[in-house]
Amino acid sequence: MKKVFLIALLFVATISSYAQDWQTDFATAKQLATKENKPIILVFQGSDWCAPCIKLDREVWSTESFKKYAKDHYVMLQADFPRKKKNALSEEQTAANAKLAETYNKNGIFPFVVVLDANGKVLGETSYKKTTPEAYIKELNAFAK
């Protein structure tokens, strides 16, 4: 019984070590970016209605290779705009995401990925592309240099 418990614990620890640590607060993301000397990857998405957003999540953000790389190289910031009532965000989060969109996504593009420095300065922009996580990382890194 002890072995089963230890194996389960090890499995959970391994999985959680590669979990994507998405921030939802811009101020927190900027503080982390400053402290850790990392760029911010700001992702505008419609998690429950935008097909390219869902594909980007499945093909890049949720892959083990991206999560492993991002953990050491980026501060991930999510601005979600769900449409279904069951996925509704708090009023505060909805307002915060709208404020981010006013500043960084005036054209309302989804998905829209903005690479920022720790002060919030735009370094580059991209969107969904049918590509590998490694190629997407290369593109994001090109903006951050």
Rank of each mutant, 00 (worst) to 15 (best):
V43Q: 00
K121Y: 02
K86N: 10
K71E: 06
V114F: 03
N97Q: 11
F5Q: 12
L100C: 04
K2I: 15
D25A: 07
F66R: 04
L140N: 03
A29M: 12
L123D: 14
K86E: 13
P52E: 08
A96M: 12
A27L: 02
K55D: 14
T34G: 08
S62H: 14
A27V: 13
A19N: 03
A98S: 07
K2M: 09
L9E: 00
R83D: 04
G46P: 04
P52H: 01
A51C: 01
A144N: 07
T14A: 13
T103R: 12
C53L: 04
Q23I: 05
I40C: 08
I7Y: 11
N105S: 07
T94H: 14
T24P: 03
K67N: 10
L56A: 02
N119T: 15
V75W: 08
T103A: 12
S17A: 14
E92V: 09
S127E: 09
N87Q: 10
A144H: 03
A144S: 11
Q31H: 13
Q20T: 02
L100G: 03
P82D: 07
K145E: 06
K68S: 11
W22P: 00
A79M: 10
I109K: 11
I7F: 14
E134N: 07
K2Q: 13
T132C: 00
Q45M: 14
A51G: 09
E134Y: 03
I7V: 15
F44V: 13
I109T: 09
E36F: 08
L10Q: 10
S90Y: 05
K68E: 13
T14R: 11
S127T: 13
L77A: 14
F112T: 02
S16F: 10
Q78N: 14
E125D: 13
E92P: 03
G108S: 10
K84I: 02
G120M: 11
R83F: 13
G120V: 11
D117V: 03
Q31I: 01
V60L: 00
V122S: 15
